[in-house]
Design a protein around this nucleic acid. Structure first.
Length: 504
RNA sequence: GCCGCGUUGGUCAAGGGGUUAAGACGCCUCCCUUUCACGGAGGAAUCACGGGUUCGAAUCCCGUACGUGGUACCA
């Protein structure tokens, strides 16, 4: 079985959660069935002019591990994969439709259309459509005489080609996710197929391209469902009905109130794009999951199970496991609200379960970006092992591991002060001397020395641990104190205690 | 307005005629730990509403409400 799927991202404003999930489901389905994953870039109109959008999308997909088999950058037998490079062929198909009476030329200007919408507006119909009724009253090849049309065409009059929706027909098809869906043709308008600039609209392009690229399965967002009848009809009118792909309309990802938007992210403090995206027009930055410190594995994992599950209690999936168990029939038909808390939980789980070596590269980058200097690789590995359980997002490593590389600049004095005594101070002064005398610097020795001295001074060791911790790490967090002392070494331990003693 | 799609705890969700209605996130309590976490044991919290069909409905049907999408020479 060979399956091809396609995805048409809209590069207008970055790559949001819903977009990545659409690609992901395409990818999983294709890989599950051993098919190819085709990516075609829709670059009509405004999207074409968004600087860097295409490169950005590929960077995001690369990070996620979702690179397509065929695409503008990877090539393939059915190229070109960029819509603007395929412009010429669309007109041919649109003209064929006109010749067979399934489409027509429309010469109405923007003003005429606006006027139409205004004058036919009623209480029951607040937004009149260019449909089977209205088209009889407009300037098109259905109302004009053949000679008039010919003359207009010869004079290069601006025009579009619209589909001629049939009257009183019921169109239905089977969606892989929602089952049977049907529409009445009278309620669908005569959509523009070919624009005045010669570029196809999505409706024409998607059908022509899917046919030419031999696409067998098409997944897209639920927002496309209402225009499905147009596409169905086009497949039929172009005579390609038996090649029509199977459809799957994916549910939406929702925000705290309504459809998830960029604004939700800004408002509630979570990312909505895969990676940082700066709108070249407004210079507005939208934060990405990558920069926020998410692991790609976690990002893919959380997206995959937002709207799909395999019926078991399993929640953690690697990409390979997803490919193996993905089933389009188990995708929900209802939209799902995005929960950032759960998203972070996934990342935490992934950090905990990944081994040190595969974490090392990312952690090193984060620590270095936090101004820390790492020279010893083995040392870094030990520390990651020790602190990874307490890191939810990658930047948490700066807080949780930073003190292993650099003495804390500020100490949480308030945590110690209330219970600080002259006896405790004396204890630490003496402890410093003892530490200096330790020959074999290892956990047991450091700890025994500590306990012995505490007993001798008649202070409970527990009461001394918090001050010691604050001296070494700066606050009330981190792994076992003695373990920290062992790792940072004798000199550093002594220095930090001595320095802190002056502040308490 | 019209059309489409949807509705199981706060969130993600299993279950698709008979269940004490799984599980996860978050929240709360306790244990472990004289830090913070991890881990462990518990707890609170749900079938949108109204009619049918049926011995029996979260599950099937119809309405209503609510949500969401579409209604562009945007995708």
């Amino acid at each position: 079985m060979s399956v091809r799927v396609r995805f048409a991202p809209s590069p207008t404003g970055g790559l949001h959660l819903g977009g990545v999930r659409t690609v992901l489901y395409n990818y999983l389905f294709a890989k599950h069935h051993g098919g190819e994953f085709v990516l075609r870039i829709e670059d009509t109109d405004q999207t074409r002019f968004v600087a860097g959008a295409e490169e950005y999308i590929f960077n995001c997909l690369k990070w996620c591990g979702l690179l397509p088999d065929e695409s503008p950058v990877h090539g393939g037998p059915y190229g070109p994969y960029r819509q603007s490079e395929r412009k010429e062929m669309y007109r041919k198909y649109a003209e064929t439709l006109v010749a067979h009476g399934h489409a027509y030329y429309a010469f109405d200007t923007k003003e005429e259309l606006e006027q139409m919408r205004e004058s036919f507006k009623t209480e029951e119909n607040t937004s009149p459509q260019y449909d089977h009724n209205i088209r009889k009253k407009m300037r098109n090849s259905l109302t004009l005489t053949t000679d008039e049309v010919k003359e207009l065409l010869e004079k290069d009059t601006r025009h579009v080609i619209r589909i001629k929706m049939p009257e009183h027909e019921m169109i239905s098809f089977t969606d892989m996710i929602r089952g049977e869906v049907s529409f009445q043709t009278d309620l669908v308008d005569d959509k523009v197929l070919l624009k005045a600039d010669g570029m196809p609209t999505y409706h024409l392009a998607v059908v022509v391209d899917d046919y030419l690229m031999k696409i067998t399965h098409a997944f897209r967002g639920e927002e496309w469902l209402p225009s499905a009848p147009v596409h169905l009809l086009l497949w039929k009118y172009l005579g390609w009905e038996k090649h029509m792909p199977q459809w799957a309309h994916l549910p939406l990802i929702l925000g705290p109130n309504g459809k998830l938007s960029k604004r939700d992210g800004a408002k509630y403090g979570f990312p909505v794009f895969a990676m940082n995206w700066t709108d070249p027009k407004t210079n507005e930055l939208t934060e990405g999951f990558f920069e926020k410190g998410f692991l790609p594995e976690a990002f893919i994992n959380l997206l995959a199970v937002l709207g799909w599950n395999d019926g078991t209690e399993k929640e953690m999936y690697s990409m390979d496991e997803l490919i193996a168990s993905f089933d389009i029939n188990r995708v929900h038909s209802a939209g799902a609200k995005f929960d950032y808390e759960k998203a972070k939980w996934f990342n935490h789980e992934w950090i905990k379960s990944k081994d040190v070596r595969s974490l090392k590269y990312d952690v090193r980058l984060v620590l270095e970006s936090g101004g820390l200097i790492i020279t010893d690789d083995i040392y870094l590995e030990k520390i990651i092992e020790l602190v990874k359980d307490r890191c939810t997002l990658l930047p948490d490593f700066i807080q949780q591991a930073g003190f292993f590389f650099k003495a804390p600049t500020t100490l949480d004095v308030d945590a110690v002060k209330p219970k600080w005594t002259e006896e405790k101070k004396m204890f630490f002064e003496e402890y410093i001397i003892r530490l200096k005398g330790i020959g074999n610097w290892e956990l047991a020795t450091i700890e025994n020395s500590f306990k012995e001295l505490a007993v001798a001074k008649n202070i409970k060791p527990g009461e001394l641990q918090l001050p010691m911790r604050v001296m070494l790490v700066g606050g009330k967090f981190g792994p076992a104190v003695m373990q920290i002392a062992e790792l940072i070494g004798k000199e550093e331990t002594v220095n930090r205690i001595a320095k802190a003693l002056k502040e308490f």
